[in-house]
Write a protein that binds this DNA or RNA. Sequence first.
DNA 1: AGATAGATGTCGTCT
DNA 2: AGACGACGTCTATCT
Lengths: 249, 249
Amino acid sequence: MTVTSVHDPSHREALWELEDAFERGDLVSVFGRCTVSYEGRAASDLGAGDRLLVLKPDGAALVHTDEGRQPVNWQPPGSEHHAAVREGRLRVRSTRDNPDETLTVRFERVHQLSAMAVTGGRDLELHGSEEDLRTRILERPDLVETGFEPRETERPSSAGPMDIFGVDADDTPVVVELKRRRVGPDAVGQLARYVRALKEELGVDDESDAEDAPAVRGILVAPSVTDRAAERLADRRFDHVALEPTPAE
Amino acid sequence: MTVTSVHDPSHREALWELEDAFERGDLVSVFGRCTVSYEGRAASDLGAGDRLLVLKPDGAALVHTDEGRQPVNWQPPGSEHHAAVREGRLRVRSTRDNPDETLTVRFERVHQLSAMAVTGGRDLELHGSEEDLRTRILERPDLVETGFEPRETERPSSAGPMDIFGVDADDTPVVVELKRRRVGPDAVGQLARYVRALKEELGVDDESDAEDAPAVRGILVAPSVTDRAAERLADRRFDHVALEPTPAE
DNA sequence: AGATAGATGTCGTCT
DNA sequence: AGACGACGTCTATCT
């Protein structure tokens, strides 16, 4: 059998089951009334309440309430789970180094504990990412602009790698920044850094950087931009090309 | 009793339990072998395997494998859960509008299904946040610099609200940007936008913005900065003050 | 509803 | 191990 499960166990019973599950490398879920405290990158305390504790064999720990996509407390993979009975109660502790942090869950009562040996696919096939957008442009550069010629992807610069580097119909260098969804001002800042770095690298002076024909162009490719982002694009004389990661149906 | 739990139920049994749990507003966990597909902001497919499905009464749905802090698939709060038996199998679907997205989990087999009525504390007391850092500085402005005087927090500007606005010992305006942990170049860009906005607002011309005494100063308060961030700070003639959100023990 | 910035963000990738 | 940027980021706050 792949699943073990106990209903309303004593704290000591719960401890045995937990230790066995850790030993087997099971994925564990514990329903119960507990308090939670965390100390590490920050520090937090959570009063008594019913929660779901998930313990993974890779060291991840998650404490979920009845609300939210995010766990109310957690510990990243690579941590170590320890269970014990202290003062007559089940205590589960998950710790890691670098940074030093500890998550402690103290159960007043355990309602349900289940453990399962996990097998099977872990590989997610995801479509619609920034990489899809890059592929799309490399296959059809004219989607960016007539005459646009990609020269390099992930081109290094002193400001980090730029998404796509190329030239336009006039052979002017072009830095393309890709975003898979609507963007705010931060993306323009990122593009500006790459353009500035490339200008420095090419030794462009302010003279040759004419009002109507910049020496290095910046193009932000994204489905859409916020008003503030549009302002900043105009300030910097960058262009925006509206494009989705995947063709509209 | 607050918890209901079934072991190796038939798909139809599982369906009844799920519908009851939705009705009661329970927090639900399902262990089983399933395939998962998502369609919405992106699209993804996940082949058969053992996973833990968590369904929350607020509409959140999480699919967890045995690895990682993040669910391999999910649906945010506000979604609607629907369960059905299709082709002899339990199918759980979670949908929402704006954006339109759907998560579908098809179970080949349900190993364990538990549901719990959740009561009790949801309020987390968290320490060590950016707000703690702000409080710390407002109580002891000299931690930033001798003579520093905070005047306003969240002061509005055309580039958005700045964390702390104040003046230094020479009555020069100071924009303070707070970060709770080590920062990269992006934080400097953010600070630069606020400083530029304030200069424009105050009508500072390049004349009065002397080499050694800027008309508006920028200070980045963070535990530490990366090399690249330090360069960009130097370029802009901004200062860095090393400070933690909470005093070191 | 959209916009903006924080987060114990997490996660992959590259140096 | 640190740095950097993407993410179906999520989440709170403000307009």
